[in-house]
Amino acid sequence: MSPWRRLLRRPTSVASLAFLAVVVVVAVGATVLGVVDPTAQDLHAVNQTPGGAHLLGTDGFGRDLLARLLMGVRVSLTIAFFAGLLDLTVGIAYGLVSGLAGPSVDAAMQRVLEVLAGIPTLVVLVLMLLVLPPGMVSIVLAMALTGWIPMARLVRAQAFRVKEREFMLAARVLGAGRVRLALRHVLPNSLGLVVVQTMFTIPTAIFFEAFLSFIGLGLRPPVASLGTLLSTGFQTMTFLPHQLLVPAIALSAVMIAFNLLADGLRDAFDPRGVTRR
């Protein structure tokens, strides 16, 4: 059975996939097309509770919470997308080179990796965001700085596994160079694992954006992101709990969906548990 079929046989995966598809389409569509305006202020309707003209209420500046939530989801997903993309490219490149370039290069690259992997993500993020100007690009770059390491390990391990197979020998006999071997043979054979790994980096990125914005290192309030919404919501929690609950539920729902989908993908692509710890 193909991995995709296996994935679609699992109800939680299908539900998560459908949910995320709807979220992405609605959040991106509504904000890009201007159906909702996350910056418009209605000064006669400040701090409204949900219901009425503003479905999820308004914030302290009279901005529509639903509009801000959709914008926030879009911002968080954008960050997660680019963080995932960077991890993917750097990690695959490093893993392929390390796995195929020969023992001495590999040993050196692995020592570097070992040392870098010891640096806690939290420390990297705090330091980088203190230095870089606040904004989405900084967050993505800071996250990518050590984020690619698990991907590199995975691809290298897969390269070692594939290296010994007959088709690799055949390709080499037919004169395929290292680059061709890497891109035409090792990479396609790692694709499933790469997809699974990427699916795990996305919720991590969403978490870190929210986390950093909450402690004042990520995005700053006029920008709507799940993190800034949470942090403003937290300040007014006692009197206006919905301003916290709305982004909290949205963030949790998106995280749950991504985690369930990632689990489903892993079981589908990797029944033998290579990516499992």
């Binding site: 919720p203 978490f207 929210a210 986390f211 909450f214 949470l230 937290f234 929690m237 916290l244 609950l245 909290a248 963030l251 949790s252 995280m255 749950i256 991504f258 985690n259």
Partner: peptide, 12 residues
């Protein structure tokens, strides 16, 4: 437990 960040759980 894995999906809901600890600080969101803390606030709730």
């Amino acid at each position: 437990g894995r999906s809901v960040p600890s600080f969101v759980a803390a606030a709730l």
